[in-house]
């Protein structure tokens, strides 16, 4: 029974941090969801704070919502989290500097591959007796 009580007490902390649903401002909800989906839950494995049911994510979501309600732009909200956690908090790396590589390499592979296929199919469909 003590274990169950402890469990309840623990969950109470969660309840305190939980979002207290005001009459839903659906526009604000949607904007919050959009920003929250781009921020990483620091205690999960690659989930965004939008998806994660963890207590910390619920708190961070309410921070996002409060800041958006106070008139900050989505970029300003993200900048706030970057200043606290570093760029690591963004689930998608900013496409500049070294990070460009991760965006560019797959595209390069497709371009080179398509080029190779065009050359190969041309070569393979040429009549066998014509000069190579």
């Amino acid at each position: 029974m003590t274990r169950l009580l402890a469990a309840f007490a623990f969950a109470a902390l969660g309840a305190l941090g939980a979002v207290q649903q005001s009459p839903a401002d659906s526009v604000l909800e949607a904007r919050t969801a959009e920003v929250a989906a781009q921020l990483r839950c620091p205690v999960c494995q690659g989930l965004s704070i939008q998806d994660s049911p963890s207590e910390l994510s619920q708190q961070m979501r309410s921070v996002v919502k409060d800041q958006l309600r106070a008139g900050k732009s989505p970029d300003e909200v993200k900048a706030y989290f970057i200043s606290k956690y570093g760029e690591w908090i963004l689930l998608e790396p900013k496409p500049k500097g070294f990070n460009v590589l991760v965006y560019l390499m797959p595209v390069l592979l497709v371009v080179i591959g398509l080029g190779w296929i065009v050359v190969a199919v041309r070569k393979w469909t040429r009549p066998p007796d014509s000069p190579a």
Partner: peptide, 16 residues
Amino acid sequence: VAEAIKGVKVSVGEPF
């Protein structure tokens, strides 16, 4: 790779 070469921690997740 980013951490090894540039010493920065980045995340590559669902949106990417």
